[in-house]
Amino acid sequence: MAKSITHEFVKGLWEEVPPFRLVLGLCPVLGVTTKMQYGIGMGLATTFVLVCSNILVSMLRKAIPAKVRIACFIIIIATFVTLVELLMQAFAYPLFLQLGIFIPLIVVNCIVLGRAEAFASKNGIFLSVADGLGIGIGFTLSLAALGALREILGAGTLTLWEGIELVNLLHVFPGFHPFKFMVQAPGAFVCLGIMLCFMNMVGKK
């Protein structure tokens, strides 16, 4: 079966969407989603690294010896992560401070290495770009969804980007008490677990 670019792109959005379908790369998922905005920022940074490393790995796939491929992939990924780190320091400093350690941690995000190993090292450049974009956008959407759920329950607000507030429940319902548990560490696990449960309910017929 010939692989089409659209198929590779779309599968990342539902069929193989991380972190739900592929339970990989959980650390940033749990760590940064106290606000929707941080989830989106983290997702975009990861998407950038994913697409760039997919391109480079796929270009070099015939040149990299099979025995040292993992080390080569890690160096390629680390290069782009450093790039993102420096770019964010220059253009999105407040977000960089909030995401903190999770930006350098993209290096050890299993999703990025997993796609390089499982897909980009075996396929052409265009397919790899489509795959990287699909998985990246799927990851961003999942992070945004989890972030939105936690933020609306835990703080009563929904922030799309720095200063752009979509909803503020505190204004709509003056008596609303935020459920603080959700934005704290234990809430992250429980929230993701429940979301996964709903995904399973929808996914299985």
């Binding site: 809430g187 677990g193 429940i194 996964l196 449960c197």
Partner: peptide, 22 residues
């Protein structure tokens, strides 16, 4: 329950353990 099986219940459990560390 079926939809909660495996990773899902594991995450909720981890949440409760996390609460005790809290």
């Amino acid at each position: 329950p079926r939809p909660l099986q495996d990773t899902s219940i594991a995450l909720v459990t981890a949440g409760i353990i996390s609460l005790s560390f809290y």
